[in-house]
Amino acid sequence: MLPRFWRKIKYRYNLVGTYCENCGTYYYPPRNLCPKCRRKSRIKEVQLSGKGKVISYSVVHDAPENFKMMKPYVVALIQLDEGPVITSQLVCKPEEVKIGMRVKAVFRKYGEEGESGIIYYGTKFVPDEKIG
């Protein structure tokens, strides 16, 4: 899985998404082809703001092996201000999260390939207190 992780490091660390200049739609995860314009797609990479709001969420109790030490943890569907909805972990207390709450991106560890393997870093979100 090492090359597979490495290949997407730019997008995972930094919320680099894509934008279709033909129809004005933002995508994250990034896409090489716009599903609205298909062959007319004009895709370019863009840095997304990392700000958004919670569309839906779950507090995961029965955690997969790699996430056991974090349980219970919050996963959320987050709509970025540019439009796309992404799946991410939300770093906050389970009782804090609410649909509609503003969140912002932070840099965190997602996991590792065992004690001697590579570390998966990526983007999670935290409540964006400034906006409330």
Partner: peptide, 23 residues
């Protein structure tokens, strides 16, 4: 790559569907 990687396995994904349906 973009769901399960984040700890969103099938129960978590359906849970988010359920949460929004409830809301």
């Amino acid at each position: 790559e973009w769901e399960v990687f984040c700890g969103a396995n099938l129960p978590a994904l359906f849970a988010m569907i359920a949460r929004l349906h409830m809301e």
